[in-house]
Amino acid sequence: MGILDCRGALAGRRAVLIGGAAGIGRAAALALGGAGVDIALCDIDDESIARTSAELRAMGRRVLGMQADATQPRQLAQFYSEAAHFFDGIDTLVNVVGGTCMQPFMDRSERDCADDIQRNFGYVIESMRHAVPLLQRSGRGGSIVNFTTIEAHRGAGGFAVYAGAKAATTNFSKAMAWELGPLGIRVNMIAPDTTPSAGNAAAIPEPWRSLNADAPPEWWAKAFQMYIPLQAPPVADDLANAVLFLASDLAKSITGQVLHVDGGAASALGMLRWPYDEGATLPVPMGGTLRKLFG
Rank of each mutant, 00 (worst) to 15 (best):
V161Y: 00
A221Y: 00
A15D: 03
G181V: 01
F121K: 01
V63N: 08
G8W: 06
L93C: 12
R186W: 13
Y80A: 05
G23T: 11
L290K: 14
A202F: 02
M271T: 03
D88P: 15
I204P: 05
W220K: 12
S109E: 00
G25R: 02
S127R: 11
D88Y: 02
L230E: 00
A167W: 00
D214W: 04
T169K: 08
L41K: 09
S253P: 00
R119Y: 04
I144L: 08
W178H: 15
S248N: 13
Q72W: 04
R186E: 06
T281E: 14
Q67V: 12
N241M: 08
I150Y: 12
Q136V: 04
L282E: 01
N120W: 02
G34F: 01
P229M: 14
G122V: 03
Q78Y: 05
I144C: 08
G60N: 09
L250Q: 09
M106K: 07
I44W: 02
A27R: 07
G157E: 00
D38E: 03
S143V: 03
P133H: 11
P234M: 02
V94T: 10
I204L: 14
K292A: 14
G199M: 10
T170L: 14
V187A: 13
L293W: 13
F105H: 11
L244Y: 03
S138R: 13
V161T: 15
I150N: 14
A9E: 05
G263A: 09
E126I: 08
E55I: 05
L93K: 14
P73I: 06
S248W: 13
P217E: 09
P275E: 03
V261G: 11
I125C: 06
M271R: 14
R51H: 13
M189A: 11
A77Q: 12
C113Y: 01
K252Q: 05
S143L: 09
P182C: 07
V235N: 08
R119W: 03
W274Q: 11
D91H: 15
I117W: 14
P192K: 04
F224E: 00
V94K: 10
D214H: 06
P182T: 00
A280K: 14
Q75F: 04
A58F: 07
R13C: 04
G184R: 07
D193Q: 01
R62D: 10
P217D: 12
L4A: 07
A168S: 13
A168T: 08
I150L: 15
E110T: 13
I185P: 08
G158V: 07
G25Y: 02
L211G: 07
G295S: 12
E47F: 07
F105V: 13
A251E: 01
S127G: 15
A268T: 10
L41E: 01
H130D: 00
G23Y: 06
D193R: 03
